[in-house]
């Protein structure tokens, strides 16, 4: 039971990451579309400004939870890094619970705003006239997923997982340095 929940959660985060990645691709395609539509022999008016912006938002929010779980969100680990193990555990419980509370609060208000946009039928100002609640749904959903991820971290620490304070750039560099040639380095 416990294992299947764990597996389901991990699949969920990775799915979020992959969907976020798909929106990066869609955004690229939209912008390429705009470049093509502007060529002299193509007679289409295609405005990617709003669509690519909405893809960006979807990508940024939907990938938050995945980014947390791979340890890429930035934090200052320097000061707590030197604490003894027991103290580190308490600090990590404090960090994850505060972060979960904050993102839960943010999710709640994002949902309210999302609901308002839907109720009032807000449309984007550009030529595409996209109902705003659609892209905003990605924000609500992404923030909820991030809240779940923080709670998940909280319970993992509570159940005894070792605590490490690291940051994304250190993580990247570690990976580049460890990688056998041919490398698979990461950007930051």
């Amino acid at each position: 039971m416990k294992d299947s929940i764990r597996a389901a959660l991990d699949r969920f985060y990775r799915c979020c990451g992959l969907i976020s990645a798909i929106f990066v691709v869609l955004m690229t395609l939209a912008i390429l579309g705009q470049i093509i539509s502007r060529l002299p022999f193509v007679d289409v008016v295609f405005d990617a400004v709003e669509i690519s912006g909405f893809c960006l938002a979807a990508s940024l929010f939907l990938g938050l939870a995945y980014t947390l779980k791979v340890g890429a969100h930035i934090r200052v680990g320097l000061l707590v890094g030197v604490l003894p193990t027991r103290a580190k555990r308490w600090v990590e419980l404090w960090c994850t619970s505060v972060a979960a509370a904050l993102t839960a609060y943010a999710s709640y208000h994002a949902a309210l705003m999302n609901l308002d946009s839907w109720k009032f039928g807000d449309l984007s100002a550009g030529l595409a006239a996209i109902p705003l609640w659609v892209p905003q749904l990605a924000m609500t959903f992404g923030l909820i997923a991030l809240t779940i991820a923080f709670l998940d971290e909280f319970f993992l620490v509570l159940s005894g997982r070792p605590v490490e304070f690291r940051d994304s750039e250190a993580l990247d560099v570690e990976e580049i340095l460890k990688a056998p040639a041919p490398l698979k380095p990461r950007n930051a």
Binding site: A21, Y66, N187
Partner: peptide, 9 residues
């Protein structure tokens, strides 16, 4: 995925 990590961060 690496792009997602960096840009979401």
């Amino acid at each position: 995925l690496a792009t997602v990590r960096t840009s979401c961060m």
